[in-house]
Structure formats: structure tokens, C-alpha cells
Amino acid sequence: MDPNQVNLVRDSFVQVLLDSDAAARLFYDRLFLLAPDTRPLFRNDMTEQGRHLISALAKIVTGLSSLDVMLPGLRKLAERHVGYGVEDRHYAVAGDALMHMITVHGGSTIDSATMQAWKSAYALVADVMIAASNDYRDLHDAA
């Protein structure tokens, strides 16, 4: 991602932070609508889960300008997601839910360049996490 894309993501994420509980609810409502099979993966209080989501997104958004620092954390997050039962196919649905959340909460600040920046950021994160998940599964399947 180029610095302009990073800035577009950061600037638009502020709108999510202004009403983060509602944004998280919107994300999970969309996720469960598109992939009802993901609902049982979430056993905790959904308000608290939403706060974890927004916190993780904030770390990712902040880390976009220093990927080398962020990558180990993404790999660990991916390993935890394997333990929760997340499958590779869930990343596409989560991406859709994220884009929906950004579009709704970004309002008029979301233009095509901003959406493309978010799609690039998510693709980068999802690719890293899917690869890390598969490495983790391969390592543990071989053991």
C-alpha cells in the first residue's frame, strides 16, 4: 500500500471509532447474514467481541505504515483464529462485512479511492493471515 492509501484508511477509520459499538454490531450482523455457520464461533458476549474487533482493527490500521512490525502480530492472530474454528473461506465473508461496515459508517467520506484503499488493506491482512493459518495447520497436522 502506498502512503496515500494508508492515510485514506486511517482518516476513514475515525468514523468507525466515533460509534464503534454500532459499527461492530453492523459488522457481525452482516457476517452472520452472509455466513450463518460462523455464529457458533462466537461464544462470548457480542458487545465485548465487538470491542475486540475494533481494537484489532485499530492496531491494523495503525500498523499499515510499518508492516514489518505488524506482521508477527497478524500471524499470532491467525493462529488464534485457527483455534476458534475460522476457515480460509471465512476471510472473504469477513472482508465483505468489513467493507459494508466502512461504507455505512464512513458516510460521505467514503469515495472509490478510499474503498480501494480498504480493499487493498484487507487483502494484505487476509493474505498474511490465511498463509499463517495454513502454516500453523500444516505444522500441527505434521506433529
Rank of each mutant, 00 (worst) to 15 (best):
P40Y: 10
V125Q: 08
S120N: 13
A23Q: 05
H52P: 00
Y122E: 03
R30A: 02
M1E: 08
A35T: 07
A121D: 06
A24T: 04
D88W: 01
S55W: 09
L26N: 10
V14M: 08
D135N: 14
L53R: 01
G106N: 03
S20T: 12
G73C: 07
T47P: 03
V14D: 13
L31Y: 06
G107F: 05
P36K: 09
A23L: 08
A56E: 02
A131L: 12
K59T: 10
G83C: 06
D45N: 15
G85W: 11
R89A: 15
A58V: 01
V61M: 05
A58W: 02
E87I: 10
T62R: 12
H140G: 04
L64N: 03
E48Y: 11
A117D: 10
Y122M: 06
M129W: 12
E87P: 05
L53A: 04
R80H: 15
V93N: 03
D135T: 14
D68Q: 14
I102L: 07
A78W: 06
N7L: 14
L31V: 03
A143Y: 13
I102R: 03
S133N: 07
L57H: 03
D29Y: 07
M46C: 09
A113F: 07
E87C: 08
L41K: 11
L139Y: 11
S120Y: 04
M129Y: 14
S120I: 01
V128S: 14
A78T: 08
N44P: 00
L64W: 07
H105G: 01
L64E: 05
A131C: 06
G50N: 05
D11F: 03
D135W: 08
V82L: 10
Y122T: 06
D21W: 00
A143P: 00
L34G: 00
I130T: 14
I54G: 02
V6E: 05
A131R: 12
A121W: 07
H81N: 11
V128N: 14
T38V: 08
R75M: 15
R51V: 01
L33C: 06
E48D: 09
D45P: 02
D19S: 12
A92F: 01
R80L: 15
A22L: 10
A123F: 08
A92C: 01
